[in-house]
Simulated assay, not measured.
Amino acid sequence: MSSGTRRKGEFTGRHMALVLVGGFAIVAAVNFYMASRAVGGFHGVVVENSYVASQKFNTWLAEAEKARALGWEVRPGRGEDGHVLVETANVPAGARLEAELRRPIGTKQFETLVFNPLPDGLHRSTAPVDAGRWTMRLTITAGDDVWVGESEL
């Protein structure tokens, strides 16, 4: 066979180049798609300035230890009607409960809840919460004592 003729269906360097370019194009397209989905579901930074946050870290630890020393027990949950229920133990009567809810992923959504006390240390949110996954930051205040906790809801 001479160098100028080619058999029909022969795999050439041009075919290999097209396979490589096509393969890398698919990988790049998938990477760009996944990166855009990841960035779209991220709601921002945890702290604005990590250096400033590091300077407050020991203070945050001391506040957490002080709250733990109060001995308050808290068990959050959600009722069938969508209201958030918080069961407490050892919390003084008349304590005020407030919560900030945020969606951990997906659509950016925030809610603020206020609670009404019920008998036996139970507290019920004044408004129902949409179904789905939430992160709840609960604050309980009784006089000068403050307890803060975060949990999945």
Rank of each mutant, 00 (worst) to 15 (best):
1 M>R: 10
2 S>D: 15
3 S>N: 13
3 S>R: 13
4 G>V: 14
4 G>M: 13
5 T>W: 12
6 R>Q: 12
6 R>S: 12
7 R>E: 10
7 R>A: 10
8 K>I: 13
9 G>C: 01
10 E>V: 13
10 E>Q: 14
11 F>S: 00
12 T>G: 06
12 T>H: 03
13 G>K: 06
15 H>F: 07
15 H>P: 09
16 M>N: 08
18 L>A: 14
19 V>D: 02
21 V>E: 02
21 V>G: 05
23 G>S: 12
24 F>R: 07
25 A>Q: 01
25 A>G: 12
26 I>N: 01
27 V>M: 06
28 A>R: 07
30 V>K: 04
31 N>C: 14
33 Y>E: 12
33 Y>P: 02
33 Y>R: 11
35 A>S: 05
35 A>W: 06
36 S>C: 03
37 R>H: 05
39 V>G: 02
39 V>M: 11
39 V>P: 00
40 G>C: 10
42 F>M: 10
45 V>E: 10
46 V>Q: 08
51 Y>F: 15
52 V>S: 04
56 K>H: 15
57 F>K: 14
57 F>W: 14
60 W>E: 07
60 W>I: 03
62 A>T: 09
68 R>L: 14
68 R>Q: 14
71 G>H: 07
72 W>K: 12
72 W>T: 06
73 E>P: 01
74 V>P: 02
74 V>W: 07
75 R>F: 12
75 R>I: 12
77 G>L: 08
78 R>D: 00
85 L>K: 13
85 L>I: 15
89 A>F: 08
90 N>W: 10
90 N>R: 15
90 N>V: 09
92 P>A: 14
92 P>D: 09
93 A>M: 07
94 G>Q: 01
94 G>A: 07
95 A>M: 08
96 R>L: 13
98 E>F: 08
99 A>F: 10
99 A>W: 09
99 A>C: 06
100 E>Y: 08
101 L>C: 06
102 R>L: 07
103 R>M: 05
104 P>N: 04
106 G>I: 08
107 T>C: 03
107 T>W: 03
109 Q>K: 14
111 E>W: 11
112 T>V: 11
117 P>K: 13
119 P>Y: 01
120 D>I: 13
122 L>D: 04
122 L>H: 04
123 H>G: 07
125 S>R: 02
127 A>T: 06
131 A>C: 02
131 A>F: 07
132 G>V: 04
134 W>T: 03
134 W>K: 05
135 T>H: 05
136 M>F: 08
140 I>W: 00
141 T>V: 14
143 G>H: 03
146 V>E: 04
148 V>A: 09
149 G>P: 04
149 G>K: 04
149 G>W: 09
150 E>S: 04
151 S>M: 09
151 S>G: 00
